[in-house]
Amino acid sequence: MFWICPTCGAHYPDTEQPPAECVLCEDERQWVPPTGQRWTTLAELAAAGHRADIREVEPGLLGIGVTPDLGVGQRGLLLRTDQGNLLWDPPAYLDEQAKQAVREAGGLAVVTSSHPHMYGALAEWSHEFGAEVVLPEADVHWLQRTDVRVRTWSGTEQVLPGVTLVQCGGHFPGSTALHWAHEGGVLLTGDTIMVTPGEDRLTFMWSAPNRLPLPEKQVRGIVAALRDYPFERVYGGWWTPALRSGGSRVLHNSAERYIQFLRGEVAIDGGVR
């Protein structure tokens, strides 16, 4: 029986007793509940009423979420191509409904993630479909499951034709965006880059739950990493919000505005000093 941290969604190895702590929640980018560390299992979650939430996001992208929310609340994305399917940022829970949806979509070749808070149930998906797990070398040590083989990479990695992983850094050293060269370009970001509620801007955080901003150097690094990958649409780690058009332009403009705030160059009335 493997263990699941319900606060961050991390999966831990099959042991008689749960770990003393969750190393991801103890990190400053995450948090431990005031009542202390908690643990659960897939069986307990199913008994409590958790179930898969399957929705089409756009043609070629199938969303796989969980209701009620679990961990950081992400919904995964199944990217479908003629050369195989890729699962991005899988949530911490999966059930037969989710597995069947993936079977009907053509199975699974690759499982990967934007960063450690969204590794979720990647080991279970890999076992179920014999899919390759692909993670950045810089962050693979955060993966707590030891029963899965991982192929590591750095910089950029084309995992399927037209599908490229880009190491942007920022939130974690290996924080990744996925670029899909499809109909103007699509960017999947987890929370490496965050879409704002108005769906017209992007922003950056070192820790979203703890309200810690990302420094200028890392923001510029994200923009530079994506310079050669044009895109229109941006899908973050949740069902909403999403950026529907002008993604590359919005990323550049949003980064410059964010840096103005970091430097104190913005007047209280919103103008530039």
Results as ranks from 00 to 15, higher is better:
residue 2 F to E: 12
residue 3 W to A: 00
residue 8 C to S: 02
residue 12 Y to A: 01
residue 21 E to I: 14
residue 26 E to C: 12
residue 36 G to H: 00
residue 37 Q to W: 06
residue 49 G to A: 06
residue 49 G to M: 09
residue 56 E to K: 09
residue 62 L to K: 06
residue 62 L to V: 12
residue 67 T to H: 15
residue 69 D to Y: 04
residue 71 G to I: 01
residue 79 L to Y: 10
residue 81 T to Y: 14
residue 82 D to L: 15
residue 83 Q to G: 10
residue 85 N to G: 06
residue 94 L to H: 02
residue 101 A to D: 06
residue 105 A to M: 10
residue 107 G to K: 03
residue 110 V to F: 06
residue 114 S to R: 06
residue 125 W to C: 03
residue 140 V to I: 13
residue 143 L to W: 03
residue 155 G to V: 02
residue 161 P to D: 08
residue 161 P to C: 07
residue 166 V to F: 09
residue 172 F to M: 10
residue 173 P to G: 08
residue 180 W to A: 02
residue 181 A to F: 01
residue 181 A to M: 08
residue 188 L to H: 05
residue 189 T to L: 05
residue 189 T to V: 02
residue 195 V to G: 06
residue 199 E to T: 06
residue 201 R to M: 09
residue 207 S to E: 04
residue 207 S to N: 01
residue 216 E to D: 14
residue 216 E to W: 10
residue 218 Q to W: 11
residue 224 A to I: 14
residue 224 A to D: 07
residue 224 A to R: 07
residue 230 P to Q: 09
residue 230 P to C: 05
residue 231 F to V: 00
residue 235 Y to L: 09
residue 247 G to Y: 05
residue 247 G to W: 02
residue 255 A to E: 03
residue 259 I to A: 13
residue 262 L to I: 05
residue 266 V to F: 00
residue 271 G to A: 12
residue 271 G to W: 06
